[in-house]
Design a protein around this nucleic acid. Structure first.
Length: 464
RNA sequence: UCCUCAGUAGCUCAAUGGCAGAGCGACCGGCUGUUAACCGGUAGGUUGUAGGUUCGAGUCCUACCUGGGGAGCCA
């Protein structure tokens, strides 16, 4: 008797034909008739269920097996029979079924459709459903694909700090990290909170980006990336924002904006191809039940060149557009969601890099172009999801960086170490941030970020 | 934070201001191959919360809570 997984059997059942096998798993469905019954068994190793057939004639505890509820954990010993022509390629004729862990009658996951909203309320049980078993297997595979992509290229992975004293990253509201008593914080003479007696002796926050630290490593290892959690305390209530999410941030030295875009494009295509090859069952499921045109679209994207357009040209294209926008199109103003959607969904109908934005609307570290008006920034917009990548060539010229920091009212002494990188062997370098969850949304068609994070944290919601 | 829609059985939903219902699920029974099986039966409700209008409120009004969608912020 061999202990096998459902994955092994679906990969190749032939060697097991007629053999006795042993399986563990959870009951997805159980229906009995007078003389026999069927259990759909999922053991977590594969998207599909294996069908277990049990017959009254051969199993003394038939009535007890027939009463095993959905969600119960069982172990099964039986003979594998190939069933060509049936809806499933094989099934297990049970010789013994043992109830390992019963499931109560009020088990919330039923063999029927549930709304995503309801399943979010039972996030501890939803990975047992078809949709979420597919989503989270894909999430795991994609994480692996990201590491593989960069490691194959010789990139060094660095774990950027989660707690940071950088107050100047400028990417949104911060979560404060403190051990001070919020009821009675120590006060200075002027009545303000005395952070010098806090754990780190200063104000600290959860990171909003590992970029600055990645730059330091890029100027030692040349090509590096971070892949870790990121925290934003924004009061954002949208299907695309979470307070805790994961970002992939490569940083490459001796490189310009075009190298940056080439890397981003290659990475996105690699991720798609990896999924097509390693999660065909899940991708087929998404294509059929989540987003009808998904697979065809992804195949086209993997094959086609991404569009590239400068911000200035994009503004011209939008002005000429035969469409009314709620927000006016004007050089110097940031692109609104409706503008981004128009560009990627109507003009190009594929991913598009928008580059060289006005310096006023972008971050201080982005490299000033020769026109002295725009910076070497790039956003990757994709149909349906919007911005999934934001990046830039970094300002390597210390004088200009100092000027820009002054413009943004960032104190130089807080980022002295960052300026040091320009003083000691500073060189052209670039990088970007990919929102991991947004990529998953884009590749699966799942339209709410709360459904691609195992236990999502959003404004007013931190359950589980 | 702003705009908008919604909240009725475990789930998905119906009910003209006039007796609160169906399908699925659960439970009980039937059925010789099911595939979200099928057929019959049983149980299951403070209609999100608090006020108000009315002879009478699931339905109308006010506030709040929760959730969805859109906007802003952004990845």
């Amino acid at each position: 008797m061999e202990k096998v997984t459902v994955k092994q059997l679906f990969r190749d059942a032939d060697p097991y034909a007629g053999q006795e096998v042993h399986l563990n798993g959870w009951v997805r469905n159980n229906r009995d008739q007078k003389a026999f019954g069927f259990i759909a068994l999922n053991d977590g190793t594969h998207f599909n269920q294996v069908q277990v057939v049990y017959e009254r004639e051969f199993l003394p505890g038939y009535d007890n097996i027939a009463r095993i509820g959905v969600g119960s954990a069982i172990s099964v010993t039986g003979i594998l029979e190939l069933t060509p022509g049936a809806r499933q390629p094989f099934e297990i004729k049970a010789k013994k079924v043992t109830l390992e862990g019963p499931s109560a009658e009020d088990y919330p996951i039923q063999p029927k459709r549930h709304s995503r909203e309801f399943l979010r309320e039972v996030a501890h049980l939803r990975p047992r459903t078809n949709l979420f078993t597919a989503v989270f297997r894909v999430r795991s595979l994609l994480a692996y694909a990201v590491h593989q992509f960069f490691q194959e290229k010789g990139f060094i992975c660095l774990h950027a700090p989660i707690i940071t004293a950088n107050d100047a990253e400028g990417a949104g509201e911060l979560f404060r990290v403190t051990t001070l008593d919020p009821q009675h914080p120590p006060l200075k003479d002027d009545g303000t909170v005395d952070y010098s007696s806090d754990f780190f002796g200063k104000k600290t926050n959860l990171t909003v980006s590992g970029q600055l630290e990645a730059e330091a490593f890029a100027l030692a290892f040349k090509d590096v990336y971070t892949f870790g959690p990121t925290f934003r305390a924004e009061n954002s209530n949208t299907p695309r924002h979470a307070a805790e999410f994961w970002m992939i941030e490569p940083e490459i030295a001796f490189a310009e904006l075009v190298d940056n875009m080439n890397l981003a494009e290659e990475m996105v295509k690699y991720m798609i191809e990896y999924l097509m090859q390693n999660a065909p069952t899940e991708m087929e499921f998404f294509n059929q039940f989540v987003d009808k045109g998904l697979q065809e679209r992804l195949q086209q994207i993997a094959a086609a060149e991404f569009a590239r357009i400068s911000y200035t040209d994009a503004i011209e294209a939008l002005k000429k557009a035969n469409q009314k926008f709620e927000y006016p199109v004007e050089w110097g103003k940031d692109l609104q969601t409706e503008h981004e959607r128009y560009l990627t969904e109507k003009v190009f109908k594929k991913p598009v890099f928008v580059t060289d934005y006005p310096q006023e609307i972008k971050a201080f570290y982005m490299r000033l172009n020769d026109d002295m008006k725009t910076v070497a920034a790039m956003d990757l917009l994709v149909p349906g999801v919007g911005e999934i990548i934001g990046g830039s060539q970094r300002e390597e010229r210390i004088e200009i960086l100092q000027e820009r920091m002054a413009d943004f009212k960032i104190k130089a002494d807080e980022l002295k170490w960052y300026l040091d990188l320009r003083s000691y062997g500073g060189v052209k370098h670039a990088g970007y941030g990919l929102g991991f969850e947004r990529a998953i949304m884009y590749f699966t068609g799942v339209s709410n970020i709360r459904d691609v994070i195992p236990f999502p944290r959003t404004v007013n919601s931190c359950d589980f």
